[in-house]
Computed example of a mutant assay.
Amino acid sequence: MTSVVVTGASGRLGRAVTARLAAEGFEVRALSRTRRADAGGVRWAVADLATGRGVAGAVADSDAIVHLASAPYRGRYTRRVELDGTGALLAGARATRTGQLIYLSIVGVDRVPWGYYRTKLAAERLVRDGGVPWTTLRVTQFHEFAAEILAGMARLGAVVADPGIPVQPVDVRDVAGHLASLIRRGPSGEVEEYGGPEVLTMAEAARLWLDSRRSRRPLLRMRVPGRLGRAFRAGHLTTPAGPAGKITWQEYLAGQDEGSP
């Protein structure tokens, strides 16, 4: 049985990935900073990526590592998790001769002028040069992330969207299934991309969200300024790569509880 270590296992994608891998017969070892009870075919191990404590023991005798953990927009702690934590994982993987490491990154990380993206790109380089067979998978924005952004704006009274920005939201369940297929395929030593099944404008996605929530909040069309806005409008958050996910934005919204903020 293939033994897979999953970092970031308690996050929205991590929960989908551990459940999918366990259902497909993998031996799943999930990492957490605090002790958790084993359940659903998932065994939990205590490890702290920010300090490196427990990482080597947690990855020992693993066949593959799926590195999902992140801590965006948290200053120095972000760099400790993304860079020090990735380095600790690679050291543990080298010591135990783990067969592959899959690192989850973001579509556009090399083209969008954003501080967090630069940190992710530096982590990609660590993986590339880390001495462990690897695949880096860049994905587009999760459905949940897009919904959270829209909900946050709606609570302030209106939803603002740049109609010139194309977006390609992807479902974590689709990403989980794709990651399972990558484990079975083996490391490519390449940066690959994976996106949702459709490209919408930011304004179209916002209107669908408002309609699904039966919200009366106004939709204000406004351009995102500066270099960031230009990068977004250039389509750097989307990818033509295949295969792509199957669950559309509208299908995701239809599965959520109704109610307007």
Rank of each mutant, 00 (worst) to 15 (best):
residue 104 L to G: 10
residue 62 S to F: 03
residue 213 R to P: 15
residue 68 L to S: 04
residue 104 L to A: 14
residue 144 E to R: 03
residue 174 D to P: 05
residue 31 L to P: 00
residue 138 R to M: 03
residue 48 D to T: 01
residue 113 P to F: 08
residue 121 L to H: 11
residue 104 L to S: 12
residue 185 R to C: 07
residue 13 L to M: 12
residue 106 I to D: 08
residue 159 V to I: 13
residue 69 A to G: 11
residue 92 G to Q: 02
residue 207 R to M: 11
residue 138 R to K: 14
residue 95 A to N: 06
residue 36 R to N: 12
residue 190 E to M: 08
residue 182 L to R: 13
residue 87 G to N: 06
residue 54 G to V: 02
residue 133 P to D: 15
residue 30 A to I: 04
residue 86 T to C: 05
residue 168 Q to G: 06
residue 257 D to T: 06
residue 244 A to I: 06
residue 172 V to D: 07
residue 78 T to C: 09
residue 206 A to Y: 03
residue 134 W to N: 04
residue 8 G to E: 11
residue 105 S to K: 02
residue 22 A to N: 02
residue 25 G to D: 05
residue 89 L to G: 01
residue 219 L to V: 05
residue 54 G to F: 01
residue 223 R to T: 02
residue 10 S to E: 15
residue 62 S to W: 02
residue 108 G to R: 00
residue 100 Q to W: 11
residue 25 G to M: 11
residue 117 Y to P: 14
residue 172 V to L: 09
residue 188 S to K: 09
residue 241 A to S: 07
residue 26 F to N: 11
residue 153 M to F: 15
residue 19 A to L: 11
residue 220 L to D: 06
residue 1 M to P: 13
residue 252 Y to R: 11
residue 135 T to G: 03
residue 204 E to N: 07
residue 252 Y to I: 08
residue 36 R to C: 12
residue 261 P to R: 10
residue 175 V to W: 14
residue 101 L to T: 02
residue 220 L to K: 13
residue 18 T to Q: 04
residue 149 I to D: 10
residue 208 L to R: 15
residue 40 G to D: 15
residue 258 E to Y: 14
residue 74 R to W: 06
residue 176 A to E: 04
residue 260 S to H: 13
residue 256 Q to D: 04
residue 59 V to S: 01
residue 164 G to A: 13
